[in-house]
């Protein structure tokens, strides 16, 4: 839209961090929390992770079993659709590539539905969770994930808005079509690329 806001100069944008996608601000050392539901308190014994749907074999890991897989880390930023970004984070977990490899995705699979122990879902194209772009994460900045942040484990897809990084993740269901998850049915974008500002349906 043409025009600008009368009297608004903006603050500190001359040194705006080039790592900030449009419309985002740097949350600095804070880590805002957003949830839609009561935060489940899950013990490690109760947690499992399953790959199901269009795969050669459905595989479920317990907490101990998934920790026996090769561990993988992510260093970088996360971006929340509510406009904060957080830089220089260090995440630890298991690459989704490792998990998919164990289950053997069918060639027909094009999308995944992430589902959680709390009943939440979010949809992603399969290509957005392969090739070193997605993790099942257990720790951030050296600390185990707290329930606030989705602990014991959450999905981590840092190149998309953070609602795609489902807290309390329980698994991925491979599909041959796209289907909206929880926030996507409630008005949020199917894909969620922060660099394209894919915030809401219709963006």
């Amino acid at each position: 839209m043409a025009g600008f806001t009368r009297g608004f100069q903006g603050r500190g944008h001359e040194e705006r961090d080039p790592r900030l996608p449009p419309g985002q601000y740097d949350a600095g050392t804070t880590w805002p929390v957003l949830t839609a539901e009561a935060t489940p308190r899950m013990s490690h014994d109760q947690w499992t992770f399953t790959i199901e749907g269009l795969v050669d074999r459905e595989v479920t890991w317990t907490w101990d079993e998934i920790h026996e897989l090769p561990q993988s880390t992510y260093d970088g930023a996360i971006h929340c659709v509510t406009t904060w970004s957080k830089f220089d984070m260090h995440w630890e977990g298991v690459s989704v590539d490792t998990l998919l490899e164990a289950a053997g995705p069918s060639p027909a699979a094009t999308h995944v539905m992430a589902f959680t122990h709390s009943g939440y879902t979010t949809n992603l194209p399969l290509e957005d969770v392969v090739g070193g772009k997605a993790w099942v994460a257990f720790a951030a900045d050296g600390e185990p994930l707290t329930p606030d942040h989705g602990g014991p484990a959450r999905l981590l897809v840092p190149h998309l808005y953070f609602w795609k990084s489902a807290k309390f993740v329980a698994g991925l269901r491979l599909l041959d079509h796209n289907a909206p998850g929880f926030w996507e049915r409630n008005g949020y974008h199917d894909h969620g690329d922060p660099w394209r500002e894919e915030r809401y349906q219709g963006d």
């Binding site: 804070t30 805002p32 929390v33 957003l34 949830t35 707290t146 606030d148 942040h149």
Partner: peptide, 8 residues
């Protein structure tokens, strides 16, 4: 909810 978490 809004604002930083207690554990940030």
């Amino acid at each position: 909810r809004y604002g930083p978490s207690a554990t940030a």
